[in-house]
């Protein structure tokens, strides 16, 4: 890669917060390092990964609002977690977590249990049970 080929395509949603250090050849053939402001294929790969996440979150939201799944399922997906990862953070078994993902079991949970889930999902216990808030959350990157 020549130094004038270092991509400056603009970073995906970052607005210059992080620039990548790239190594490139200058016109005499010597390597130097320079800062890159994003590259299109990379941005697209990242976008693809996030779109996938958002798609799953949206699916979960509909199921929660339909009363099938619990808000834990929604916030778990929003935190890109799986039941096994959530199990590691909360200390509950995977089996138990999968059970708590269903609304009919969720409504019976004790406040201590809710607090533990809320902590693992980076929200407050009040937010976890607030379906109005869940309905209104915009799933997008703030830019």
């Amino acid at each position: 890669m020549k130094i004038d080929e270092v991509p400056q395509d603009g970073a995906y949603l970052i607005k210059g917060k992080i620039r990548d250090l790239c190594y490139a050849v200058d016109k005499d053939g010597h390597y130097t390092s320079t800062l890159s402001m994003g590259w299109k294929p990379k941005n697209e790969a990242m976008q693809l990964a996030w779109e996938q996440v958002y798609e799953h979150v949206e699916e979960k939201r509909q199921l929660v609002l339909a009363g099938k799944l619990s808000p834990i399922a929604f916030y778990m997906e929003l935190n890109i977690m799986t039941p096994s990862l959530l199990a590691e953070y909360t200390g509950y078994s995977r089996w138990k977590i999968k059970r708590h993902l269903k609304m009919k079991h969720f409504v019976k949970l004790r406040p201590e249990v809710l607090a533990k889930y809320a902590e693992a999902l980076n929200i407050t216990p009040a937010e976890l049970v607030d379906l109005e808030k869940l309905r209104e959350i915009v799933i997008k990157h703030e830019d």
Partner: peptide, 22 residues
């Protein structure tokens, strides 16, 4: 998605371009 993951690994922050080859 799998292809996307390979590209992310190749170019994700910290490779200095092209999966450390540069």
């Amino acid at each position: 998605l799998n292809l996307g993951q390979v590209i992310r690994m190749l170019e994700e922050i910290g490779t200095g371009g092209a999966g450390f080859r540069f």
